[in-house]
Design a protein around this nucleic acid. Structure first.
Lengths: 261, 261
DNA sequence: CGGGAGGTTGAAATCACTCAATTAGAGTGG
DNA sequence: CCACTCTAATTGAGTGATTTCAACCTCCCG
């Protein structure tokens, strides 16, 4: 891991896909789920943060940890996961740039699950103290972050419904719909095409399926002409059809507005 | 539904199991997951609230609603649930007295799931305005409520792990462990015995199983001498064994302390 | 041009579901 | 107090979705 401390508003390095600062990304994310005033944006810009590169498949938080800072994903992809007795893995969420996967530990203190990177990633680490200071200064910003964690919860519930009550075909389609909409919201998609560095094993562990079955299900979805998925790129060839196949209703994502592609 | 407005601190009616006010219950709940100062307790006591009786199997919130108050469950039992295309139901959480099942809609505005009672229940309805006023006055209390919703999220994740990766036997055992610990935390259990007004269909819908399979699994768990379950009362005959069978680790519940029985 | 991770395939096994009755229990009204 | 009724629990049999196991293929990367 390379470290680099500094203000969250420092300019992005060459690795940033756009010349955008971490603060700008965070603001964009928050504005995709609510509204910010000028002074609130300013306060967010003053957050201190350390910038870190994370190799793929590296744990960022481990069960039992007591994190002292919050991780803002700048680039890449990561997930939350838990392991069960016999070694099986359940991925409980995927995270894209703009997400704060370990924000819950700001108030839960001790980590009850793991967070790890799935692709080479860049993150900004914001000390808990800085977050709490921001919340004291701007309580409404705290409420917006809270809203963010509540949307996380809504996504958990939606996944639960999928794992518990939907067929493999529906589940996989639904996941793709969700990821596309979420990535659109932070402008990480061109049309209905997104970069998706997931293995079939990752998808299986997220949806409570076996790899073999995910493989066969993907072939079905491809066969229905709904998607194309190769080399880490997912394209929805038939968005309407994919939504229908996934029984996807995006209300649970609680977008303020969906940004045009 | 009978209505009755008044301060949240008004004395409970005859139906209250203990002569405890709604505010006292709420304080007890919050203190099971964190700490409150005297002035914070006072502020909680000043919350205005309307008291309502709810018949069993009555929806309290419906998908698409825009609630304007928060529901504090005083007595009884309720759950969150979602329906899928073919009519199947997934219960995403169970709620016991002290819980605020629709708190998320304070910040999400539009309900993305349903909340309904499973038993005859008493609730206190606290206007959103009153909650927001409390949060303005006592930001740390807001953080404690936030912590509560984060624990909700942790429970969602744990359920996801169960539904996705654990056997029916483990899942059912785990659910019982969780409910017993949660009810102990608000002193609703005597020893390892709790009132549990759930049908096998409810359990099935919560765990992503069929009723038939739940029935057979219960027989197995009973057969192993771990529990007794009749007429709405669950008794853990072998607590250690039940925890082991359910692979139950209670860290995810993030108790401040576990109250003695 | 290996080597390795990830993807694909086939066949057999199984957990859990569906369907369809049957039984038990709690509440109701005569 | 007993039929009646409705809901919940239970049982058996047959089915099916998904898993497991094990092999093989493919593509990327050094």
């Amino acid at each position: 891991m390379e470290h680099g401390a500094g203000a969250l508003s420092c300019k992005g390095t060459s690795l940033m896909s756009k010349s955008e600062t971490p603060a700008e990304l965070l603001i964009r994310k928050l504005e995709s789920i609510g509204e910010l005033s000028g002074s609130q944006r300013d306060a967010l810009g003053r957050l201190e943060a350390a910038r870190v590169s994370v190799a793929p498949h590296t744990d960022i938080v481990r069960e039992g940890d007591r994190p002292t800072s919050v991780t803002l994903l700048l680039e890449g992809f990561c997930c939350r996961y838990q392991l069960v007795a016999d070694g099986k893995r359940q991925i409980t969420s995927f995270h894209i740039p703009g997400d704060l996967p370990d924000l819950p530990f700001l108030f839960l203190s001790v980590a009850d699950h793991n967070v790890c990177s799935l692709a080479p990633s860049q993150v900004a680490m914001i000390p808990h103290k800085a977050m709490l200071g921001l919340f004291r200064e701007q309580p409404d910003v705290a409420h917006l972050f809270w809203r963010g964690t509540l949307i996380d919860g809504a996504i958990f519930r939606e996944w639960m419904v999928g794992i518990g009550r939907r067929s493999a075909f529906t589940r996989v389609s639904h996941l793709f719909c969700e990821l596309i909409v979420r990535m659109q919201a932070v402008a990480l998609s061109s049309e209905y095409s997104v970069e998706l560095p997931l293995t079939q094993t990752d998808i299986a562990d997220a949806l409570g399926l076996s790899t073999v079955h995910v493989n066969r299900t993907l072939q079905e979805i491809r066969g229905a002409g709904l998607i194309e998925l190769r080399r880490g790129r997912l394209v929805a060839l038939d968005w309407e059809g994919l939504c229908e196949a996934g029984e996807f209703e995006q209300t649970y994502l609680h977008r303020q507005r969906t940004e045009a592609v």
